[in-house]
Measured scan of single mutants.
Amino acid sequence: SKGEELFTGVVPILVELDGDVNGHKFSVSGEGEGDATYGKLTLKFICTTGKLPVPWPTLVTTLSYGVQCFSRYPDHMKQHDFFKSAMPEGYVQERTIFFKDDGNYKTRAEVKFEGDTLVNRIELKGIDFKEDGNILGHKLEYNYNSHNVYIMADKQKNGIKVNFKIRHNIEDGSVQLADHYQQNTPIGDGPVLLPDNHYLSTQSALSKDPNEKRDHMVLLEFVTAAGITHGMDELYK
C-alpha cells in the first residue's frame, strides 16, 4: 500500500491521552519512536497531572497497542496490513475493555500522521470500578505478559474488528483478565486493505527511568503479524 511507504525508516511517535476513571481525571503524554521494519516501539509516557489513578499496565493496550501500524508484517502478509494502508489520513480506533469482576474502559483514538510524526490521540472513560479493586486499589504488578491480538475484516465499515484477552499479573500471584473489543475505521476515503483473519504477536517490557521524578512508564515492545501461511505457489519458487 502507499501508506506502507511512510514506515520504511524510524518514525517519531506522539501520544496524548485524556482519561476519566470513576471521576478521577488524568492526562498522559508520551513520545518515542517506531520502526515497522522490526516491529519495534520505544516509548516513554508521563502522567502530566500528577499521580496516575490507575496502574500503568492497564493503559498499555490504549497507548502502544494503539499504534499497531508499527507491527512488522512479513512480505507474504503485507496485503493484510490494514493499519499502514489507512495512512497518512489514519484511522479511528474504538475499544471497550472489560476488566473481569470490575469496571470497564471505553476508548476512542485517532491515529494519524501530523507532518512526519505518527500521533495517537485518545479519550478514555472508565466506569463501575471498585475503589478497593485491583485497578483503583493499585494491586497489579508492574510488568506485562505476551499476547496474541486477533484481527478480522469488517467489510460493512471498511475497517477491521479486533479482539483479545489481556492477563494482568496481580501482586498476590493471581491474574486480572481484561477482555478487549476493538473496531478500526479509516478517516480518509481512499482504498484500504481488508485482511484475511490473522493475529499480531506482541511482547512488551515495562521499565522506569531512574532520572524521572514524575509518574511515568518506559515501554519497549515488539509486534509481529502472523497466522497466514505462504501460498503453495510461494513454496515452490
Rank of each mutant, 00 (worst) to 15 (best):
F7H: 13
T8P: 09
T8S: 11
V10E: 04
V10A: 10
V10G: 05
E16V: 09
L17Q: 00
D20N: 11
V21L: 03
V21G: 00
K25M: 06
F26V: 06
F26L: 01
G30V: 00
E31K: 13
A36D: 03
L41M: 15
T42I: 13
T42P: 01
L43M: 15
F45C: 09
G50R: 01
K51E: 08
T61I: 00
L63V: 09
S64A: 02
G66V: 00
V67M: 14
Y73C: 01
F82L: 02
A86P: 04
M87R: 01
P88S: 04
E89G: 12
E89V: 08
Y91F: 04
E94Q: 13
I97V: 10
I97F: 00
D101V: 01
N104D: 04
N104S: 13
Y105H: 01
K106M: 08
K112N: 10
D116G: 13
K125R: 10
I127F: 14
E131K: 08
N134H: 04
G137W: 05
H138P: 02
E141V: 07
Y142F: 06
Y142D: 04
Y144N: 10
N145I: 10
S146R: 12
H147P: 01
Y150F: 08
I151T: 02
M152R: 09
K155E: 11
I160G: 01
V162A: 15
N163G: 12
K165N: 13
I166L: 09
R167C: 14
R167G: 15
N169G: 03
N169Y: 08
I170V: 13
G173S: 05
S174C: 13
Q176R: 03
Q176L: 14
D179N: 12
Q182R: 00
P186T: 13
P186H: 04
V192L: 10
L194Q: 08
Q203R: 11
Q203L: 12
K208Q: 06
K208I: 08
P210T: 11
N211D: 12
N211Y: 12
K213T: 06
K213E: 14
K213R: 12
K213M: 09
R214S: 03
R214C: 06
H216N: 04
M217R: 01
L220R: 12
F222V: 11
V223L: 15
V223A: 03
T224P: 01
A226T: 13
M232R: 15
E234G: 12
L235P: 14
